[in-house]
Design a binder for these strands. Sequence first.
DNA 1: ATATTCTACGAAAACGTTTTCGTGTTGACA
DNA 2: TGTCAACACGAAAACGTTTTCGTAGAATAT
Lengths: 357, 357
Amino acid sequence: MKRKITLKQIAKELDVSVSTVSKALSNSKEISEDTTQKIQAFAKLYNYKPNNIALSLKNRKTKTIGILIPEIVHHFFSTVIRGIERVANRRGYNVIVGLSNESFTKEIINMEMLANGSIDGFILSISKETLLKQDYHHFNATINQGIPIVMFDRVVNEVDCDKVIVDDFNGAVKAVKRLVENDCKNIALITTMDYVSVGRLRTQGYLEALQLSGIEADSNLILKIDDSLDVENNLDVLETEIVQFLKSNPNIDGIFAVNELYAVSAMKVARKLGFKIPDDIQVIGFTDGVLSKHATPSLTTVSQHGQKIGEQSANLLIDRLEAEDAKTEQYFTNNEKKSDFIKVVIETEIIERESTK
Amino acid sequence: MKRKITLKQIAKELDVSVSTVSKALSNSKEISEDTTQKIQAFAKLYNYKPNNIALSLKNRKTKTIGILIPEIVHHFFSTVIRGIERVANRRGYNVIVGLSNESFTKEIINMEMLANGSIDGFILSISKETLLKQDYHHFNATINQGIPIVMFDRVVNEVDCDKVIVDDFNGAVKAVKRLVENDCKNIALITTMDYVSVGRLRTQGYLEALQLSGIEADSNLILKIDDSLDVENNLDVLETEIVQFLKSNPNIDGIFAVNELYAVSAMKVARKLGFKIPDDIQVIGFTDGVLSKHATPSLTTVSQHGQKIGEQSANLLIDRLEAEDAKTEQYFTNNEKKSDFIKVVIETEIIERESTK
DNA sequence: ATATTCTACGAAAACGTTTTCGTGTTGACA
DNA sequence: TGTCAACACGAAAACGTTTTCGTAGAATAT
């Protein structure tokens, strides 16, 4: 077992100084042709690669991005990660992943752990518990320490940073309008509790679309699921709620659900109750994941383009990191010009499949 | 914007030496009560936290695990990550994620990038291209550099390291036996090309189960899908292949598929062709993901317990890392005792749902 | 009063780099 | 022959820690 070789060892072996080796390897013309050749050959032979940690310490930057998300076994979030990783990799960054598990405390612990030098910046989506508590001090604290943050999807006005969001509102409007165009008269909404902003926005979009179409909203047609408990493992609860809902509103002929799972469950339940899809009831979901694609019938959904979100977020963050570099090098550290933050809105798109006409 | 405070700054501010500050913060009794108090108060006030990078450099360990997987938008792999992250976090480690995207080259690049000091050890699953080329030098190279590896799921005998695998063979046997018990007479297999070991093992399990049941295997009943091209985005190809398959073998009354997607697609196609599930054809898949749970009808599958795999892998790796520590501290560096590696087999379990009787 | 042991702290090395600055040697030039 | 620049390299600092060792002064023992 031969440990990685260091500059010092090369230096000793070749009987030159460490500085000479370093310079030779970076092709500095301070070093003679001969010595450079010799050193580079030796380095290649022993497969020398500079130690990242040492570089990080010296340069005070790690070339690493911290991702902090609520959950990873989740089509949308993993797609975002994939997007982040793609551009991060291309631009020479690594990606370190922390999971908040929707918990406020874990979010804080994870942030602090990573903020102590491990990463140059964060890309994150806020946990439900944090949204509920509305306590965002940890975000502002890290920003104040000079660590930039990019938030995506679940964002919040109280924190000043770059943001990448899905146009949830218009996505919902589009979806519901489509149902109206397809002759649905009684369009139901299956949504989450209001504190998750995306749920709220999609609900607002639903209402807006109805109003635009001259349809009066009927609160009986809105089903709010309390997903404070883990729905994935409480399918039964979800399904029985939907059964109740459909039974007490037999006139429903269109359903807009704020996520894939609700939509697919609704289809399943509806079919068990004897409805034909899309003939009796048309369904549109949100989030274009595996379920939508492979459900029977396959589900028409509003696609969020998770990968694009990830890519944009990463570009935004890295741009800012490297802009800071440039600024630091300028001696007029344009100090108090409160830099303004960017909010990128990713447009949604309706993917038509079999659950609509 | 106040950057994080360092020992040096505290030292200067309090007019003591850096060493004193360091010792005071670790409650060394070399330092007087008074000074300790004063320093700790000051440190807390300014929220001092030691810089991880500096610590990593000093201790020559990063407390970070590198995960290298082919794909992240994938139920099984993300579940494994969740498992890894859980125990890593509990045991004080971070997790850095690299995606090979099933590419040999990206796998190597990623490994080398991380092996230069960024991580203490790897947990990985081999990319398809690497399996195809059968070129494993990069794994052995990193191991030789003293960086331990734990492989999971897609493992290979040519590399000496800890491994965590699913009992693919027996999982398949169980599944097919179940179909036999459920009175299936003509059991089909939908599988991948042989170079992916898990596919091969599951195929062998299928054959074994048939033999045990006294049924002669019929090569017509085996459909091998070439997924060198990205199947996720080539659903049509997959489905038409299955259509052909079912049409030319109308006697099929049971299907065992080596993954969720194949199984669900088979169900979908079969139903379109007029078969009832599970009455006419019973289906069992492998990998208990979202699809299985939410398909209509829901799919009976062989669960791989991805999270458990992740947890085991992480524990194995961390155990080895910390054992090394201990060993280094002993002066009799029991050098040439070639340590033996562990192979953990995670048992599968059949999750019964609606696609079987 | 002298010798010895604590007590409480500081200096310096080490981890692996890069970079600034200094310096000895050579060659050119007047 | 003396001056100066160019060349080729080394020493040292710096990034932020921890830890080993040394030591001044105080306390104790003789």
